[in-house]
């Protein structure tokens, strides 16, 4: 992956909360850890030497428990929180140290944010809320209303434009929040635990909606979550944070199969791995047995999730053939193999 495909790149970013960040930085450079610094200086380390980049058009999930610095991290991107040191680039443009005016431009054009608490303006109608970002940017009323209406249609809220936020349910309020962020057509959509305050059914519906919108518009989305199910469902890549540090970045399968440490492994405890692993990941080529295609013998596609092939493997009398999208033979899965894989994770 070359750097031209990176829309956001973060290098050596630190954030220290407190009156004397230099002191804490010196201690960090000397190798002190977070709790030691807090005890000695009273400075809290929010983000510790973060390095990663987000590719154009992907959903990048930042995951961690509360206090791991994930919400701080996302606010560093649009400088709602000032980084203590390091560099953040959007489309090759340096964000840290931008003067106020240029920073406002970045917030208006390059990045929009969706909040856990929705943060809608109670004194504005749904339409005015959705057009808020455009109004702030100085767009004429006619034009911004048209674009806000379009955004409301995208999130399925056409017809509610004259309601006020308190008349809507939580899920609908967050749709307004999403429409407000989409209306300004940002290069990057930042979503801070956007669905965490919603009940499970609505949350799952909104996740589906987000996946659909992302596929349609190919928008880059940075999504903050503490829920592994959510992260795996929507994320193309996931960064896991612990105590201000990014401990691992990878696809859901990378994290599941090669966790960097126990913290990452602990996230997957109780998680149904058959949702992530695909038939192709388990299939084995047995040299002693030649593949003979026959219309009666069962076969599965290699990109089928494991959870969907249990009954096929169980009911077939012999190992099930796995074929890739071109119909080429990848190997076979026997019930024993399947059980071994499941018990390993």
């Amino acid at each position: 992956m070359n750097s031209a495909d990176d829309i956001l790149s973060v290098q050596h970013i630190y954030k220290i909360f407190g009156a004397q960040p230099e002191l804490a930085m010196d201690m960090l450079n000397a190798g002190a850890d977070k709790s030691e610094i807090f005890q000695k200086t009273g400075q809290a380390v929010g983000v510790f030497d973060a390095n990663f980049s987000v590719r154009r058009g992907e959903i990048f999930v930042i995951m961690g428990l509360s206090g791991s610095g994930k919400s701080t991290m996302v606010r560093l991107f649009n400088r709602l929180i000032e980084p203590t040191s390091g560099s953040i680039q959007i489309n090759g443009k340096e964000i840290t140290g931008l003067p106020d005016k240029a920073l406002l431009d970045v917030r208006r054009k390059d990045m929009s944010m969706v909040f856990q608490s929705f943060a809608l303006m109670p004194h504005m109608s749904v339409l005015v809320n959705a057009a808020f970002g455009l109004e702030i940017a100085g767009m004429s009323e006619k034009e911004r209303n048209a674009r806000a209406m379009e955004a409301l249609q995208q999130v399925g809220l056409a017809g509610y434009e004259h309601c006020y936020p308190h008349e809507l349910s939580g899920g609908m309020q967050q749709r307004v929040g999403l429409a407000r962020a989409l209306a300004s057509d940002p290069a990057i959509l930042l979503m801070d635990e956007a669905f965490s305050a919603l009940d499970p059914l609505i949350r799952s519906e909104m996740q589906g909606e987000l996946i659909r919108l992302q596929a349609e518009q190919n928008r880059t989305i940075i999504f903050i979550s503490h829920d592994i199910e959510e992260a795996i469902r929507i994320g193309h890549r996931i960064a896991i944070m612990e105590g201000g540090k990014v401990v691992q970045i990878g696809t859901p399968k990378d994290l599941l199969c090669n966790p960097a440490n126990d913290y990452v492994r602990a996230f997957f405890k109780g998680f149904d791995t058959s949702k992530v692993l695909k038939a192709g990941d388990v299939a084995q080529l047995d040299p002693s047995e030649a593949f003979t295609p026959s219309p009666t013998a069962p076969s599965v596609r290699s990109d089928t999730p494991l959870q969907d092939i249990f009954h096929i493997v169980a009911s077939a009398g012999r190992p099930v053939a796995v074929l890739d999208s071109q119909g080429l033979f990848q190997g076979t899965i026997s019930p024993a193999q399947l059980l071994q894989t499941m018990s390993r994770h």
Binding site: L80, I136, R180
Partner: peptide
């Protein structure tokens, strides 16, 4: 509420 202020800042309010 602080979240309204933060949202307004995030959308580029002067």
């Amino acid at each position: 509420p602080a979240d309204k202020i933060e949202a307004a800042r995030a959308f580029g309010c002067t």
